[in-house]
Write a protein that binds this DNA or RNA. Structure first.
Lengths: 120, 120
DNA sequence: ATTATAGTTGAATATGTATTCAATCGTCAA
DNA sequence: TTGACGATTGAATACATATTCAACTATAAT
């Protein structure tokens, strides 16, 4: 009744389990946001940027040197992080300084690192 | 001295800050692992699979129905999750049942959800 | 053995996205 | 106002990966 479209190519085998999960299932939108959040930190370059900014406020050139990448590349990633509200920036003279702007991200980041170190 | 290759196209502006960060910087390898971890849950389909398995052990057909996707697509993603040690499976008759096999993942997952709900 | 269903797999396709490149803007100093 | 440098941007390129498709394996029932 509520699921009249069959994109799946097989039968439900355990109806109870399926219904139980469907009832608790958050919206498609929630999962999109959630995936976007993890996707944001699911990139080596952005991870390294976030780690760096967690140590110190930095301008684009400094970051480029730390990461050994071009200004352009770093700037593109910073723009992505900024659009997501994870970092913020301020201009001072010719430089633009970036800082972290999201506590949750750092927390996720730390738990992730912990996980890596425990599991090798 | 330690950094003789210049892939970056600009000067270091704040040497102290750069050195400080470089000294604390984990290895390239660590960041790759970390990014891979987040990449794994940085996908809507895999998020929904993980959420479902957190509710109940499920076989592929059940998951396909919950997610409204083909068996094949679900199976591919399950293989990815299995390769990463996040889920495990057991066969019983014709069905293969999947369960979560990683506490940390669920924790990250929950913190992520919390973050989403707080920020809208 | 044959058939049906559950699940997997490899290759092709489609899509998303990180980096590069060239052009441009903003600020400062001469 | 010109030149130099920090930074941003859009388009092109290069690369990664999710889904589709078709073929296949595994198990069970007839």
């Amino acid at each position: 009744m509520s699921r009249n479209e069959f994109s799946c190519d097989c039968n439900i085998i355990h109806k109870e389990a399926v219904d139980k999960v469907l009832n608790k299932m958050p919206s498609e939108n929630t999962f999109n946001h959630l995936a976007d959040l993890f996707k944001l930190i699911g990139d080596t370059t952005r991870c390294r940027i976030l780690f760096s900014l967690d140590q110190d406020e930095m301008c684009v050139c400094d970051l480029a040197n730390v990461l050994n990448m071009t200004k352009s590349s770093v700037s593109h990633q910073l723009a992505t992080l900024r659009r997501s509200g994870v970092v913020k920036c301020r201009r001072s003279g010719k430089e633009v300084y970036y800082t972290l702007d999201d506590d949750h991200i750092v927390k996720l980041f730390e738990i992730g690192l912990e996980h890596i170190n425990h599991k090798g």
